[in-house]
């Protein structure tokens, strides 16, 4: 049933977009590929799981997990990326390797602290499924779609209607000139990390709820799928990332729903990526015509 699959696709695509948004915001300002963003996704899922286990309150779990993970992001930038990037003539591979290291570290910390096994993410919504006509909706799906829409609305408002957002857009476009006209570009970077890592944390919790489980290896697939989404979205473009995330989510869902996959589902993102790079290397949305 088509409508059902479209809903599925939007839901999965929202999670993808949310996961990749941090990498986009960070690339937009620092021009580095932050694989550790997928580590924020793992950390966020574990923080959320722990808070929910202790309090039974899902709102608190989202709120605090996002805040803690966002703040960790700011600290990681302050004490790891900023010192690396301040060295003269640094090769782009150096921060990339640092971010892979951080990502691996996150998974292993989760393994050490919470144990290697799967943790159940039992969130009780009161009802199991809601039937609307022929459409079957799981409450977690509504949560995911609504919360993602809300977070992206907040992001849009911050970027387009606040002074800090203006600074972010100016810095993303030309960091040197932004500095020279009086912008403390560190604040734009901090904004990228708070929002980016916070969003990744929310995505981690969502996936935990959706599949009712988390493991320390949770971030492995997102760590590379995220890359194809941000490249597809035109590297550093928030709007492009939303579109690319939804697009990949939709294609994956449709192919597996209609048994068109003679290949593993997770490779779809890369096949789409290769095709797009062959046809339109600047990504679906090129950076020059959007924020």
């Amino acid at each position: 049933m088509l409508l059902q699959q479209i809903l599925n696709g939007i839901m999965i695509g929202s999670v993808y977009a949310l996961t990749a948004m941090g990498a986009t915001l960070i690339y937009g300002i620092l021009r580095i590929l932050d694989i550790a963003n997928a580590g924020a996704y793992v950390a966020g899922a574990y923080f959320g799981w722990f808070i929910y286990l202790k309090t039974g309150n899902l709102v608190l779990a989202f709120l605090f997990s996002m805040m803690i993970t966002g703040l960790i992001g700011v600290l990681i930038h302050r004490f790891i990326y900023a010192p690396i990037l301040s060295k003269p003539r640094i090769l782009p591979i150096v921060p990339l390797v640092a971010s892979v290291g951080l990502f691996t570290l996150t998974g292993d910390l989760a393994r050490l602290i919470a144990g290697p096994g799967t943790k159940a993410y039992n969130v009780d919504f009161g009802v199991d499924v809601i039937n609307i006509g022929k459409l079957t909706v799981v409450p977690a799906w509504i949560l995911i779609i609504v919360l993602t829409a809300l977070l992206f609305t907040v992001l849009w408002l911050v970027l387009n209607k606040t002074k800090l957002g203006l600074a972010w857009r100016a810095t993303a476009e030309d960091a040197d000139i932004a500095k020279a006209v009086g912008i403390n570009t560190n604040s734009a970077m901090a904004l990228s990390y708070i929002l980016g890592y916070g969003f990744a944390a929310a995505a981690g919790i969502m996936v935990g709820i959706l599949y009712n489980s988390i493991t320390p290896a949770l971030g492995e697939v997102p760590s590379y799928k995220m890359l194809s989404i941000i490249v597809l979205g035109g590297l550093g473009s928030p709007v492009g990332t939303v579109i690319a995330g939804l697009f990949i989510g939709m294609v994956e869902t449709m192919l597996s729903a209609y048994n068109l996959t003679f290949i593993p589902k997770d490779s779809v993102a890369f096949i789409v990526l290769i095709l797009v790079l062959l046809i339109k290397p600047s990504g679906l949305i090129s950076k020059t015509n959007n924020i």
């Binding site: 857009r169 000139i177 924020i291």
Partner: peptide, 8 residues
């Protein structure tokens, strides 16, 4: 080369 913020 002016370097105005073209997308703003």
């Amino acid at each position: 080369g002016r370097r105005v913020f073209g997308n703003l």
